[in-house]
Amino acid sequence: MKRWVRHPLVLGLAGTAVLFVGLAGYGFRTLEHAFERSARITQDTTQRIEVTLKLQKLLQRAALPVHHYHIDGHSEQRMHFRMLAGEINGTLSETLSVRSGSRPQDFAAIASSWRDLQGEITALLALPDPNAMGLRVIHARIHALDEEVRALSDRVGALHDADRIRTQEQLADAARWNRTLTVLVTAAFLVTVLSLMLGAAMMIHSQATLRDLSMRDALTGLFNRREFQARLRRQVELARRQGGSCAVLLLDVDHFKAVNDTYGHEVGDLVLRELAEVVCREVRRADLVARFGGEELVVLLPHTDKATAVSVGQRVQQAVAGHPAFVVPGGAQLTVTVSVGVAAFPADAPVEEALLRVADQAMYAAKRAGRNQVTWQGA
């Protein structure tokens, strides 16, 4: 009797062990496949997003040589634009090569629009005297050019957002598969459960990394232009509903091209990163600092009237001018200054687009007035 009982018990234990090992092996193989899939999604999407963000940042700088040429009339802006256009063309080619079948025709259309825009910019830079046709005419042409650059950059941003949504869907599918895998592996082996939890943590981290990547500027770590504009829109709506105010500071590094030309772009990047830290130290924790494009930073000041915003702008401008830590190779210290434009809602503009335009005009007024100062409408 004992032998009869023992025999099926051994068979049952053996069968259970075989099933356990089989489930564990299947779970580990499936888990490995899930990890590979998540890593592939993250790697492919990160590459696409990084290239698209790089293209968007380069396009945002496309009109800068025209602005500088209009201000100082230096013909070297043509060479600067040729170099920038070469970077944009190379990035467009790189963008088309990493699309993985995702709307390559849209980027081909962007490339076509960029060729037309490149021709317009080249024509403006080819003028022997940028102001010969009259300030009103040249301002109108530059404004139209800015709108075209912004529209093209927004088209790239829309494709970037579509990629982000597509990635979230893929990661959601992978997450659903991993939850099913959790049930199987938990019943088979504790180590598999722990491995799955680790995989879930890695996926959450990847999702957070991708989400942060879509909101941040890769160089400075500040919020990017798209995220800033979204938050500015919400802040203006909030101020309008509550009858409050908010303000914007637009900062542009003075003679930044000379820094790049003299010391190289790597030093220029170091200066921008250090500048971002200086600005963040001088504003409140509730304020939002973003990189607006090129050497421009922008600060959103919630619940702030115009007079207070001017005071903050002056504090930031003086802090930058007095900052001693811009060090270049060889140990020399580099002095950097900024021109700051201030605009407030609702005192200067009723909507966020107009608010940014007023701040931009004030910033260029500071440039024309000698740089290293704060200017605002009505100053």
Rank of each mutant, 00 (worst) to 15 (best):
C280S: 15
L53G: 01
A230L: 11
V342M: 07
V193W: 07
L58A: 11
C246R: 12
A158S: 07
N260Y: 03
G27T: 05
M133L: 14
A63F: 00
I88D: 08
L64D: 15
S214A: 15
A158Y: 04
F107T: 01
L96G: 04
L270E: 15
V66H: 02
S311W: 13
M133P: 00
L232H: 05
M83G: 13
Q314I: 10
V328D: 11
L270M: 14
H67G: 07
A140M: 12
R240L: 13
G12F: 08
R273V: 15
A343E: 12
G313F: 15
G341L: 11
A111K: 14
L196V: 10
L272N: 09
T46D: 06
Y26R: 06
R281N: 15
V320H: 03
S75C: 02
L96P: 02
D348S: 08
D44P: 00
L301S: 09
C246K: 06
P104D: 07
I138W: 02
V374D: 09
L232T: 05
S339F: 12
A158L: 08
A239F: 09
L55Q: 03
L184I: 10
E169G: 10
A62N: 05
A111S: 15
D44A: 09
L219I: 07
E36C: 01
A39H: 01
Q207I: 06
G199F: 03
G294P: 11
L232K: 04
V21D: 02
G27K: 04
P104E: 06
H33F: 11
H143W: 08
E266Q: 14
W4M: 10
K306R: 15
G243R: 05
S113N: 13
A366L: 09
M363F: 09
R37S: 07
A276S: 14
F35Q: 07
G73T: 07
H265M: 09
L288D: 02
T192S: 15
A17Y: 11
M203K: 03
K57E: 14
Q56A: 05
T167A: 15
V342A: 10
L11I: 03
A187D: 03
A321D: 08
I204N: 10
V299R: 03
A172R: 12
G134F: 05
R99P: 01
E353P: 02
L181D: 00
A140F: 07
H160D: 01
R315H: 14
